[in-house]
Simulated scan of single mutants.
Amino acid sequence: MPSITRRRAPNPGRRAFVETEILAATRRLLINGANFTELGVQQISTEAGVARSTFYSHFRDKTDLLLRLATTVVDRSFDIASAWEPSDGLERLADGFRQVVGIYREHAVVLRAIAEVASYDATVRDFWYEGLSRFTDRTIAVLRDEQDSGRSPADLDLVSAGRVIVMGGKQAILDHITVGNSQHDAAFARELALIWWYGAYRRPAEPAPGRP
């Protein structure tokens, strides 16, 4: 009787474990000073303790790997940002920013790699821009609700305000985690919240023409 070779059933738990190990290995290499562009798949595989072929069975290429790392940053930040509503108030907004700053600090090497690769890779650049667009779209929607209810001024340009506070906020956070001390994170987060709150959400309405 001929032997029957049975195909081994996929093990989702094992697959997730291996992917986690590869992602963690990449972060370790970046933390230790590796340049993502110059980082080779073999080097990542060796650090993770897997074969090169195993890497390619989990990730299409290094870009796919970087996007997976970036997704963690975007999703965790968006979950925090989207949980806040203006009715929660200024201090809750400041606390949310403090949490986002913490996430950016935790993944600083990933953010540097994104900036590095986005300068020449359109896929990474588009992914990062689309991720930020989620924040901008939600901010505009929240501002529109506030404007419709009369709590934000009628002369507020929703699209411009949304882009300024999201894109500007992102750049400010990146700059802060690069040059600022973590002991100042809470103060930085509160200042950012104050700028958002009084610059858009509760900006005083401009007086009518001819009135002081």
Results as ranks from 00 to 15, higher is better:
29 L>A: 06
141 A>P: 10
189 A>G: 07
192 L>W: 00
196 W>Y: 09
189 A>T: 06
70 A>D: 02
190 R>S: 00
61 D>Y: 07
173 I>H: 01
21 E>L: 11
187 A>I: 12
84 W>P: 02
65 L>E: 07
206 E>D: 09
52 R>A: 14
77 S>V: 05
48 A>E: 01
189 A>S: 13
122 A>Q: 13
188 F>C: 02
172 A>Q: 11
44 I>A: 04
95 D>E: 15
128 W>H: 09
161 A>Q: 05
105 R>A: 06
197 W>E: 00
51 A>R: 14
195 I>F: 10
205 A>D: 09
152 S>T: 15
210 G>E: 00
143 L>A: 14
6 R>L: 15
104 Y>A: 08
93 L>A: 05
89 G>Q: 12
180 G>Y: 00
200 A>Y: 01
111 L>Q: 10
102 G>K: 04
73 V>S: 03
74 V>R: 08
211 R>Q: 12
17 F>P: 02
22 I>G: 00
157 D>Y: 06
182 S>K: 07
148 D>T: 14
35 N>K: 12
61 D>A: 12
208 A>W: 01
73 V>A: 04
160 S>L: 14
19 E>T: 14
14 R>Q: 14
56 Y>C: 10
67 L>Y: 03
17 F>S: 13
90 L>G: 00
153 P>W: 06
47 E>N: 08
125 R>H: 10
62 K>H: 03
111 L>M: 15
56 Y>K: 13
52 R>E: 13
43 Q>F: 03
78 F>N: 00
143 L>Y: 03
158 L>R: 10
79 D>F: 01
62 K>D: 02
187 A>N: 07
201 Y>W: 04
211 R>E: 10
160 S>A: 15
97 F>S: 04
166 V>M: 11
193 A>H: 03
73 V>Y: 06
108 A>Q: 03
130 E>V: 08
80 I>Q: 04
32 N>T: 06
195 I>Q: 01
129 Y>C: 05
136 T>A: 07
101 V>A: 05
70 A>C: 06
47 E>P: 00
98 R>F: 10
81 A>I: 02
101 V>K: 04
52 R>L: 10
81 A>D: 06
88 D>S: 14
180 G>V: 03
117 V>H: 10
127 F>M: 05
8 R>N: 08
13 G>S: 12
